[in-house]
Write a protein that binds this DNA or RNA. Structure first.
Length: 811
DNA sequence: CGTGACCGGGG
DNA sequence: GTGTACGGTCACG
């Protein structure tokens, strides 16, 4: 029998031949999907006995019966392990099945002769991967015989599995899909009552849209079926035939897959989509997700939301526009239900729309897959997990995997009381040098490269080096931190070793891989991972929780950034702003070269891996004051790059929720001030807008305020403006339900705001309340900016000549 | 103003 | 397979 070579894609736990089994799903070099069953790996956990107690014998005799199932210990081994760096004796306890662990554990928990039980909650599959050194996505070699398990693909029973290469899958078969559903206007999504009306698929050389109403069309990829039930049948059939390695979409975890599952249930369809014939496995709740056994499921929305900060929200259209340079097909999706009811060729553009969504999802997945695979290779986590878990869990998984090679026992998770206690523990964070509100010319920004990770390495901060007994209390102490804790200066800690490795690997990869996409992805990934450990140490749910370590890290962080600030000031630079690891310096009378010399100078004084980096030169910057205060607001500024681009941070209040007229005025004013260096033109522009509002020259649609209705209108006691409008809509016969976006305009006239909030369609051109829009919308949004130039509210509203406006437009 | 509930995204 | 996402806004007392 020749050896099978295959790229590992997914794993599952199963019981086969009355043994605990690992199912390894992969793709062979000659492009077949296969499943290898490995029965060789026994589940286990550790018991640490009290000093001098003989626990091993008692363990080996242990046998429990629960609900007609007998659980017992297969064998034990006495081992020397380490716990927080200290040597201890531990008994490794093997059981036949994963399910036996909790049963056996609950018995041992009561024993007086034990100190503790460890690693009983480490997932069997993760343990398997760690111990065998197997990494998902890489090439494995199996010596295996054919085996009939009744699965959808060739299945083998492994005699041995080896891993000897870092070679990972180059071009996995990705299949993207998207569903469109019947959804009457403004209604909440209702999976129980509203059907799926079309489903699209997209892959390289594969386009398909299935729908169950016929109309005349030339689109060759549209295929008609007879009913929703047939449509869903087609979905399972298409996935089955295509045999994807990766199935992807947008928000598929909580929308498309649950929807398909719900509708399949209605028609009693067998949703055996998993390669082991299991159905879609849905996990509900906050961390909802859909698992398809044997197939990697990447929900782009899930991954992008946690990996990329996105201005303008995470709608597919916005995400695709920003990341791929192309958006969705422009069409009114709210009208789909009406057009569906009509059932004519008006449906056609919606098929195109449906297909484009799949295509975009496909492209997004392709774009991020290299990075996802890299993270998988570094952390050992599955792609499903990498794309869904939070950073603290990724960091922890990584530590667990490393612990094995350090022979370290993994600490247990904290219980509820412990977590509650930790939750209340707080600590001093980073240092912020508050900006003096104002406008500054010629700015340079420096920031520490991976400040916290490099501090961890440089100062040997680690849960196993804190307060060691081999060093005295004065060594290695953070300057402005109470001298309660010290870190070992003789032996390197577990965390510092791991981080040093991550950082040096990243630096090396960054150097050699400037033009290589995969290496770039790997460098980014290493940075991401390195940055997550500081947060992890202070996270109340962490196994290696060490708030003291986190405190010392921020203490050193404050120390280093303050050193840079002081040094800059001593050398005659004007420090404008600093937050955590970055510093904004006004050049004042200094030259560019002076700033770069300063940078070199600072770096000479920093030890180890620590480094201050040049971020960029800026032509001008604007810092406003905080609400009700004269000090500068944190994280709220706007910069103008040398290329003339705007970088606006923290003026977040003016985004959605505000009428267009306000958003536009704020942005234009910031841009004008930054480009000219004074507020004269901006003031003219503002006054002009105010004047236009007064003269009703601003379009009604730019004054629309949008608010989401949170609950049934009957259950509101005090009527907010949007509630009043929602009631009016209901009187007009429009169906109103929670979740609906209510649009309204504040009309001119007497009375309270909520009495004057009206449906846009009920307001004649210019029927809005100019004073309201000027005083409660426009002015608050720009007040702080004009304060920088000593303008008072009264100055802003006053009108003046408009000649200069023409100049302003030419900016 | 403070606290607690709810939302995102999908049609 | 789970807890504890997370950071903001809105409702309500």
């Amino acid at each position: 029998m020749p050896k099978l070579q295959f790229y590992l894609l997914d794993l599952r736990r199963a019981e086969i031949n009355n043994r605990q089994a690992v199912l390894l799903f992969g793709r062979t070099l000659d492009n077949n999907r296969i499943c290898i069953i490995d029965l060789s790996f026994l589940p286990y956990f550790y018991v640490v006995p009290k000093k001098g107690m003989n626990v091993q014998e008692k363990l080996e005799k242990l046998e429990v019966e629960r609900e007609n199932i007998i659980s017992k210990v297969v064998k034990t081994e006495l081992l020397k392990k380490k716990f927080y760096g200290r040597e201890i004796d531990a008994i490794k306890v093997y059981v036949p099945f994963q399910r036996d662990i909790n049963i056996i554990k609950s018995i041992i928990d009561e024993w007086e002769i034990i100190e503790g039980i460890y690693e009983s909650d480490i997932s069997y599959l993760r343990r398997y991967l760690t111990e065998k050194g197997i990494i998902i996505s890489t090439l494995l070699e199996a010596d295996a015989d054919p085996f009939n398990a009744g699965f959808k693909l060739d299945t083998f029973l492994a005699k041995s599995i080896t891993t000897n290469t870092e070679d990972s899958i180059k071009s996995p078969k990705i299949l993207a899909f998207d569903i469109e559903t019947y959804n009457p206007e403004g209604r909440k999504i209702d999976m129980k009552n509203n059907p799926i009306i079309m489903i699209s698929f997209y892959s390289e050389g594969f386009k398909k849209v299935f729908t169950w109403k016929r109309f005349k069309t030339d689109l060759e990829y549209v295929e008609f079926v007879n009913s929703e039930a047939d449509l869903i049948g087609k979905f399972f059939q298409t996935v089955g035939n295509f045999q994807p390695d990766v199935i992807t979409g947008y928000n598929t975890d909580i929308f498309d897959f649950p929807y398909i599952e719900e509708r399949a249930k209605k028609y009693k369809l067998n949703a055996k989509i998993g390669l082991d014939n299991a159905g879609i496995r849905l996990v509900k709740g906050d961390n909802a997700r859909a698992r398809i056994p044997g197939i990697v499921h990447i929900d782009n929305y899930r991954f992008i939301r946690k990996a990329i900060a996105m201005e303008g929200g995470y709608s597919l259209d916005n995400v695709a526009t920003k990341l791929l340079g192309r958006g969705k097909k422009k069409i009114n999706i709210e009208d789909l239900y009406k057009i569906w009811d009509q059932g004519n060729e008006m449906i056609e553009p919606y098929c195109e729309y449906n297909l484009v969504d799949s295509e975009i999802a496909y492209e997004l997945c392709r774009k991020f897959l290299p990075e996802i695979i890299e993270l998988t290779k570094i952390t050992g986590l599955s792609m499903d997990n990498i794309t869904r878990l939070g950073y603290s869990q990724i960091a922890e998984s990584f530590l667990i995997r490393q612990a094995n090679s350090f022979n370290e026992l993994v600490p247990n998770k904290p219980d509820k009381t412990e977590m509650a206690r930790r939750f209340l523990e707080s600590y001093k964070g980073s240092f912020v040098f508050e900006p003096k509100p104002g406008i500054y010319d010629d700015i340079v920004i420096f920031d520490f490269r991976s400040l916290y990770p490099t501090i961890i390495v440089s100062h040997n901060i680690s849960p196993d080096t804190i307060d060691c007994s081999c060093c005295d209390n004065d060594s290695n102490i953070a300057p402005d931190y109470p001298k309660e804790h010290h870190f070992c200066s003789k032996k390197k800690g577990f965390l510092s070793v791991i981080l040093e490795d991550l950082i040096t690997r990243r630096t090396r990869i960054k150097e050699i891989g400037k033009d290589n996409l995969i290496l770039k992805a790997r460098a980014e990934t290493l940075k991401l991972l390195a940055n997550s450990f500081y947060g992890y140490l202070g996270f109340y749910g962490a196994r290696w929780y060490s708030i003291e370590s986190a405190r010392v890290i921020t203490a050193w962080g404050r120390y280093y950034i303050k050193q840079v600030i002081e040094k800059a000031q001593k050398e005659g630079f004007i420090v404008i702003y600093s937050d955590t690891d970055s510093i904004f310096i006004a050049l004042a009378k200094k030259s560019e070269k002076d700033t770069l010399d300063f940078l070199i100078n600072v770096n000479e004084s920093l030890h180890g891996l620590m480094e201050l980096e040049f971020e960029g030169f800026y032509r001008r910057g604007l810092f406003v004051s905080a609400k009700e205060k004269s000090t500068g607001a944190k994280k709220k500024y706007a910069l103008l790059t040398r290329e003339g681009n705007l970088k606006i941070r923290g003026f977040e209040s003016v985004r959605t929720n505000w009428p267009e007229v306000v958003r536009k005025v704020q942005r234009t004013i910031i841009e004008g001030i930054l480009k000219t260096g004074d507020a004269e033109d901006a003031l003219l522009y503002l006054r002009n807008t105010i004047e236009q509002l007064r003269n009703k020259e601003i379009d009604n649609k730019d004054t629309i305020i949008e608010t989401t209705l949170q609950k049934n209108i009957e259950s509101y006691d005090n009527a907010a403006p949007h509630v009043v409008v929602a009631r009016a809509m209901k009187d007009k016969g429009i169906d109103i339900s929670p979740g609906m976006k209510i649009e309204y305009i504040v009309a001119e006239g007497e009375g309270r705001i909520n009495e004057r909030a009206k449906l846009p369609e009920d307001i004649k051109d210019g029927g809005y309340d100019s004073d309201y829009y000027i005083n409660n919308q426009v002015i608050p949004a720009i007040e702080k900016i004009f304060e920088l130039f000593d303008y008072k509210k009264e100055d802003l509203i006053e009108t003046k000549d408009q000649k200069k406006l023409d100049d302003f437009w030419r900016l």
